[in-house]
Nucleic acid binder design. Structure first.
Lengths: 228, 228
DNA sequence: CGGCGCATGATTGTGAACAATCATTCCTTA
DNA sequence: TAAGGAATGATTGTTCACAATCATGCGCCG
């Protein structure tokens, strides 16, 4: 038997994870309602656990909870999208720097392995997997940076980025730059900090520029103040 | 009647807020057990709501949840403390910059009002209020920055900072620098970005330096690998 | 014919009882 | 006497039933 206590995830963490995966793979589109009963029978668990998972996801910002109305997949505004990328541009250079400082062979191997999976999915033309794996690449980097607060935040921002891509990406563009992840890892392996940071910033800018974040957004009007 | 829908907080948000306040005021020390039944009768609510509030606080990192054992106020390690300050040094300069760009008269007034409350608490020798208000000053700044992701993260990091102060502060030192907040606000009012950022960084460094984060920490030993 | 309001069904929110798990204490035994 | 182990009490985790709330559709009235 397994004498070593392996930290197995709780039921609710599992449920939250599966929902997050579905969102990252664009199977659950933004704004969709997540009815508790439906999810409960889909996951073969009680409604209570689903409810817990939904509150967790709400704290992470991936779903929005309207009192007495239920849970919906979040649908970030254009403004939100801009702030999100601004935040990532703030964090990820530091992530890259810390990974260069800390990463040993094992960590570099994990990065390589992940990139291999990305290439595989690209070859198979599995767009859904590509988008999810692209997000997870940044989450992996953040984890390897060793800063738990940054890592936790990136675990929230990356799924949200996938949502934003679902909302604002022009469908036909490849969306995910072919080799930018590889080049970042190569710079990290060479411990070339300046290049790695620069590549990361360009990568983020590139992803944001692909989106149609035009200013003619549907402004959410403050109907209260409008006629005050 | 109040025709304007005021977004009233849910019960569980209220409970979580009261617990957070207690932690920030050092009334709930790190590591203390938060038994559901006790809290339920203290707040005059059912255990279900307390349970929800605790999972929310766990997601925020302020309490730690051990399965089948209950909830405990978090007690961050020295390593955690260092990473926390590193993260704040990364975020708060950007916060200051954005506040300088965005803040109008109303926002500056709110900052001034907050500092007045801090001075008041200091005058009354209310150390608990001083610590809480000092944390809330940074949360207010983050909110005024207009970036919801940074603001949300600061809403988690500031209570944690209060916990770290409870753990590692030498009790007799004043702990909270007298006038550093005031000088930051003054620089913001003058729109002197360089000075404001510099003051913020010095402030954070100052707070961290006051702590006894010596390296002879109680290393949490990996008993699994130790005898492998 | 269109709009308002009420009844109805569906969904969320809450509480309480029950089951499962853990910590403590006491007893047994070597 | 100390170690091991089982009973006990306390606490967490789960389920289920019920209450509260919201959305839908129908009918009534202007």
């Amino acid at each position: 038997m397994n004498t070593i206590a392996k930290s197995e995830k709780s039921d609710i963490a599992l449920i939250a994870e599966r929902i997050t995966n579905a969102v990252m793979e664009h199977r659950l589109p933004p704004g969709v309602k997540l009815a508790e009963e439906r999810l409960a029978e889909a996951f073969k668990v009680s409604r209570t656990k689903v409810r817990h998972a939904l509150t967790v996801l709400a704290k992470e910002g991936l779903v929005t909870l309207y009192p007495n109305r239920g849970a919906f997949v979040a649908s970030p505004s254009v403004q939100d999208a801009r702030e999100l990328f601004a935040t990532r541009r703030l964090l990820e250079p530091e992530v890259v720097r810390k990974v260069i400082d800390r990463a040993g062979k094992a960590e570099l191997r994990r990065l390589r392995a992940h990139i291999a999976k990305e290439a595989e999915a690209r070859l198979a033309n599995d767009r859904r997997a590509v988008i999810k794996l692209s997000g997870e690449f940044h989450m992996l980097l953040a984890k390897l940076s060793g800063n738990p607060y940054i890592s936790k935040l990136m675990d929230e921002l990356c799924p949200l980025t996938c949502l934003i891509i679902a909302l604002y990406d022009s469908p036909q563009t490849p969306a995910c730059p072919e080799d930018e992840h590889i080049r970042i890892v190569e710079a990290i392996e060479l411990k070339d900090e300046a290049t790695a940071v620069s590549l990361m910033l360009h990568h983020l800018q590139h992803v944001e520029n692909e989106l149609k974040l035009s200013v003619d957004e549907k402004v959410d009007i403050d109907w209260e103040k409008m006629f005050a």
